[in-house]
Computed example of a mutant assay.
Amino acid sequence: MRYKAIISYDGTKYQGFQSQKNALGIQQVIEKAFRLMTQQEIKIYASGRTDKGVHAIGQVFHFDTEIDIEEKTWIRGLHKRLPLDIRIKSIKKVKDNFHARHSAKSKIYQYKLAKKPSSVFTKNYEVYIENLDIEPIKKALPLLEGTHDFLGFCQYVKDKPTIKTIYSATLKETKSHYIITFHGNSFLKYMVRSMVGTLIQIGLNRKDPNIILEIFNTKDRFLAGKTAESRGLYLVKIHY
Score class of each variant (00 low, 15 high):
R2V: 09
I6W: 07
G16V: 04
F17I: 04
Q20S: 05
I26F: 00
E31A: 14
K32R: 15
Q40S: 12
S47E: 12
D51C: 04
K52M: 10
G53F: 05
V54Q: 02
I57K: 15
V60F: 07
F61E: 11
K72R: 13
W74E: 12
I75Y: 12
R76T: 14
R81K: 15
P83D: 05
L84V: 07
R87I: 11
K93L: 13
V94C: 15
D96T: 10
R101V: 13
S103F: 09
S103D: 08
A104T: 10
I108K: 12
Y109N: 01
Y111H: 06
K116G: 00
S119F: 03
V120P: 00
F121L: 14
T122R: 07
N124A: 11
N124R: 08
Y125C: 01
E126A: 05
E126V: 04
I129P: 08
E130A: 03
N131K: 10
N131F: 07
L132F: 11
P142D: 08
E145L: 06
H148F: 00
F150Q: 03
G152C: 04
F153L: 03
F153A: 02
T162P: 04
I163F: 10
K164H: 09
T165L: 04
T165M: 02
Y167R: 13
E173W: 01
T174H: 06
S176L: 08
H177L: 09
Y178R: 05
I180W: 02
H183F: 03
G184Q: 02
S186L: 06
S194R: 05
G197K: 01
I202G: 02
G203L: 08
I212L: 10
L213D: 12
D220Y: 00
G225V: 05
E229G: 08
L233K: 01
L235G: 06
Y240A: 01
